[in-house]
Design a protein around this nucleic acid. Structure first.
Lengths: 192, 192
DNA sequence: TGGACAACCGGACATCGTGTCCGTATCGTA
DNA sequence: TACGATACGGACACGATGTCCGGTTGTCCA
């Protein structure tokens, strides 16, 4: 084991402050303009120089996943809550719906999963997949969900729905497609 | 009815030649670098100025859909062939598989559907949807596909699968997800 | 308290991509 | 051949990304 960082100092207060401001502004900007929002514009609105932005968040993905971190955390928590409050099937359906809505609203979520390799968004993906595994696993053990479906595949197809329906305002279509998928998920027997 | 175009002249030979060269080069470029390939680079490799490129294809989408036009045409033809050769269900499955493969290989296809409004890629979308409507309609009349599914929704979810699985090389996942969807499509009765 | 050093800031800059504009060259026709 | 319509080409304006460095500001210690 090599020498570890020698008592690494905490970041300076102004650095910490700027980081917070950037996150707040970035959240707004991504909500307004989608995941392609201009980074210089974000820096400008946060009242900092571009250098500051790029120092804190070297890439767009880094900023995106930082912004998304708490949404992801929220989704994780909601998975647990729904799992406790509803039946397995209802919980799975409700949570996937929440996930879909979030993924569509800021397409950045789905975008962050896709445009990056596993490096940056790995944590997010990990957390989401774990939550899905929990809910799906319960349904599978209960016998109401087909056993030959992985949490990763489930997440991926919902991401697909989000990506495919992100642009047009037809939210109904996204819901219909999710319903279709859920139908398939619960199909454990042969075709009727 | 107002006066129609007065005997509109055919394009000049050099214009026609340049258009061809651009299409050839663009096809290569999109295959190599994906749908975000640089347009100036395409112009350069085709030996024409940027102005020429933008005159023939005012937007990236215009170029993309021109490049895709023959692939789309191929898909349309294959739909008819499969429809004649196989059972309705097999034809539908086989064609959706072909569509998925094409959409993934050059993500540009799916990209063209998404990044544009209905304006530019309308023809492509129209053709694809029509082919899907044909195959799906037959299955629905046969009674092997759920009646509450529109061709548009079907296409959209396959596009979603393509978008979501375009980056990572796991072609198996795309197939698994398509199978899942097909399962749902054929589910005409209550859950087993 | 105050001074020195590291950490941090800000914005200019280099680079790349898109799409427009217009002077010039070339094609088609009389 | 000569003329007008058509098309060409590249400079240009604009906007975005990411880097770099001189100046500034916190932090720590004497």
């Amino acid at each position: 084991m090599v020498g570890r960082a020698p008592a690494e100092r905490p970041p300076r207060t102004d650095a910490r402050r700027n980081r917070e401001r950037l996150l707040v502004v970035a959240r707004e900007a991504f909500d307004e303009a989608g995941p392609d929002a201009s980074l210089v514009e974000i820096a400008r609105r946060a009242g900092v120089g571009q250098g500051t932005l790029y120092r804190h968040f070297p890439t767009r993905a880094a900023l995106l996943s930082a912004v998304l971190a708490d949404r992801i955390e929220t989704l994780r928590r909601q998975a647990a809550e729904l799992s406790a409050a509803l039946s397995t099937d209802e919980a799975l359906a409700a949570w996937l719906h929440l996930f879909l809505v979030h993924a569509r609203v800021n397409q950045g979520l789905a975008g962050a999963f896709m445009t990056e390799g596993p490096e940056t968004a790995a944590d997010c993906h990990q957390t989401i997949t774990a939550a899905a595994a929990d809910l799906l696993g319960r349904a599978q053990r209960t016998g109401t969900a087909r056993p030959d479906l992985s949490p990763d595949d489930l997440i991926q197809i919902v991401v697909g729905i989000a990506l495919a329906t992100a642009r047009d305002g037809d939210a109904g279509q996204a819901d219909r497609l999710l319903t279709l998928v859920l139908d398939a998920v619960h199909r454990t027997g042969p075709v009727a």
